[in-house]
């Protein structure tokens, strides 16, 4: 029971942090209290939030996926090449690009789950490989690496930049992707299996769960989400480049870990990831508005990461020790 009691409390802490951020940054620059600006700022972190939701599933199974940062670039390039160079319909191109993201995830997942390769090593290799493929595709097509592929249609740009009834598409996308991840993880049998696999893979296996399939599927989902993130980022920035997402490694892991998901697996949830990505996104916007250079944001996220993990770690250890010291109290509580 303690596991389920604890996560909402951490989420509450995160929520308080968001409120505190809004108040503090608003006092530094009142423009931060402008709802339109705040909602539009979702565009700056939507890509990493989308990946973060599904990397959370991977991390809960006890794995890790760092290849998403390269899949962003790959899908961006594929979208651009198919639609602008090969002249295929933009929506079919997007579909193909996301599918390729899924295939990358499938390769990761199959080799990790069935090939028994360590997740970290495999996704590191995948990171090199997928980025490499993106660079090769750009190189072979003769497109300028620096300018990227541009000239997308108006409709494509609307994916990220449009709005419905005053709500930017980015916010809607954030909510939709969050709901998909939330329902998958917290409302289905599949999600339950993900937790069980992460808590103890052998036990899960003995109780009849096909853990390999579960593990492989989380990587496919993570790959697909990276594909979607790549398309959204391309739409937002208006050109396709192979180096998109290369600086996202740190933020993605930060939102997952700051969201209260244990890197060792078995504990966590996407609500925390969603809140953490908003914290990170607002911090970026807020610091920019307060006149702090973008280069220094790494300092803030790094400190935030260490402090949150240290706090989570010490907190759980503290509880564990308290329980050992006061066993009778645990009985009353349970």
């Amino acid at each position: 029971m303690s596991m389920f009691n604890k996560i909402p409390r951490w989420n509450l802490t995160l929520f308080v942090l968001i409120v505190a951020e809004i108040i503090v940054f608003g006092m530094m620059n009142p423009r931060f209290w402008n709802v339109t600006i705040l909602l539009n700022s979702f565009n700056d972190f939507i890509a990493l939030a989308i990946i973060g939701f599904f990397v959370t599933l991977v991390v809960i199974t006890g794995g890790i996926d760092i290849s998403g940062v390269s899949i962003i670039g790959l899908t961006s390039v594929v979208t651009g090449l198919l639609s602008q160079v090969a002249g295929i319909n933009i929506w079919i191109s997007i579909f193909c690009a996301i599918l390729i993201g899924g295939l990358c995830g499938l390769l990761n997942g199959v080799l990790i789950a069935y090939g028994r390769v360590q997740a970290m090593v495999m996704t590191l290799g995948g990171m090199l490989l997928y980025r490499g493929i993106a660079i090769v595709l750009v190189g072979l097509s003769g497109v300028s690496t620096y300018e990227g592929i541009s000239g997308f249609s108006e409709g494509f740009g609307q994916i990220a930049n449009g709005e419905v009834m005053g709500i930017p598409h980015a916010v809607l996308l954030f909510i939709i992707m969050f709901l998909i991840a939330y329902i998958l993880l917290h409302r289905t049998r599949y999600g339950r299996y993900i937790y069980l696999t992460g808590i103890n893979q052998n036990t899960a296996e003995y109780s009849g769960i096909n853990t390999k399939k579960i593990i492989a599927s989380t990587y496919v989902l993570s790959g697909l989400s990276a594909g979607i993130a790549g398309v959204v980022l391309t739409s937002y920035l208006g050109s396709a480049r192979s180096d998109y997402g290369s600086e996202y490694l740190m933020p993605i892991l930060t939102v997952v870990v700051l969201g209260g998901t244990f890197i060792t697996g078995g504990k966590g949830g996407v609500v925390g990831t969603a809140l953490a990505s908003i914290i990170l996104g607002f911090m970026q916007v807020g610091l920019q508005m307060a006149g702090v250079s973008t280069q220094y944001i790494g300092l803030a996220t790094g400190v935030l990461l260490i402090v949150s993990v240290a706090f989570l770690g010490i907190n759980s250890e503290f509880r564990f020790n308290m329980k050992r010291i006061l066993p009778q109290k645990q009985n009353i509580g349970g």
Binding site: I64, M120, L249, M250, L253, V257, I263, T264, G298, L299, T301, G302, V303, L305, I306, V309, A310, G313, I314, E317
Partner: peptide, 17 residues
């Protein structure tokens, strides 16, 4: 602090930068 080495060093990477 019992932080996983991956997370700890990743955070320090961005701080040192």
């Amino acid at each position: 602090l019992k932080i996983s080495s991956f997370i700890m060093t990743l955070a320090l990477l961005s701080i040192t930068r």
